[in-house]
């Protein structure tokens, strides 16, 4: 479980252009659930995701991963937690240009120093699972939107993380590709992954695979709805104070 305790994130703190992106948020994200963060642009969804995924530190407040206080870890250990625990699917997929789909998938595992042959075999298996066997040696920029997204999902899974974080994954996909993405999410959820998705796409938060919807506005949580089979954990301690 990931627990956020009165977390605030201010961009450019102390400067005239300071912006409070996340404002005093407390939230619990249970394991093995699909949670959607929704809200209008600028509501703080993506910033909250960066805090949860150890991509940034909160200005104030604390973040716990199970019993480990991860928001106070030194950078090196925070990176280790990020690599070990989270797999990211970015909005524009953020594949490294000029690099093959296969190597893009292998990249997150490089710092672990695993032998090349074993790592390559694992990456190939993942790409085959996402029906990209024939495209694995193609440069990232030559892949279609759907292919790029599947490569991004494969990359997110290469270190076998417990949590998958996806930021607006359907923003640039047509309906059929959105369906395909949701099918992948369903498979990942079945495989026991915990998934957090930011989206303002109704096709995502209305999908049957979603267990929980967290609505944000102006950096605060305005509602937490449990829409799936699993009950909300400690719902009373969640949200932003009025």
């Amino acid at each position: 479980m990931i627990r956020l305790e009165r977390v605030t994130r201010i961009h450019n703190e102390g400067r005239p252009n300071a912006v409070t992106a996340v404002d005093d948020v407390s939230l619990e994200l249970p394991d093995r659930r699909v949670t959607v963060l929704r809200g209008p642009s600028g509501s703080g969804k993506t910033t909250l995701l960066t805090l949860v995924g150890c991509l940034a530190r909160p200005t104030r407040g604390r973040i716990w991963l199970d019993d480990e206080l991860i928001s106070a870890l030194p950078e090196r250990f925070m990176t280790e937690v990020r690599r070990r625990t989270f797999g990211f699917i970015f909005q524009r997929f953020n594949l490294v240009r000029g690099v093959s789909a296969l190597e893009n998938v292998m990249l997150p595992a490089y710092p672990a120093g695993e032998p090349h042959a074993a790592l390559k075999a694992r990456a190939q298996a993942l790409l085959e699972r996402f029906h990209l066997r024939d495209r694995m040696h193609e440069k990232a920029e030559l892949l279609s939107g759907g292919e790029a997204q599947r490569v991004a999902i494969a990359r997110a899974l290469i270190n076998d993380p417990a949590w998958i974080i996806a930021d607006e994954p359907t923003a640039s996909l047509d309906t059929s590709l959105v369906e395909r993405f949701l099918a992948e999410v369903r498979d990942l959820a079945k495989a026991g992954k915990s998934i957090i998705i930011t989206s303002h796409d109704p096709r995502v938060w209305q999908a049957d695979v979603v267990d929980r919807i967290v609505t944000m506005q102006d950096g605060r949580i305005v509602s937490v709805e449990d829409v799936g089979k699993a009950p909300a954990a400690a719902a009373g301690r969640e949200g932003s104070p009025p």
Binding site: R82, F88, N94, V96, L107, Y110, P111
Partner: peptide, 16 residues
């Protein structure tokens, strides 16, 4: 810069 950002986001350390 973007490439470095991606590598760090997916788990590369500053030392890497």
């Amino acid at each position: 810069r973007r490439e470095i950002g991606i590598l760090k986001a997916v788990g590369w350390e500053t030392s890497d």
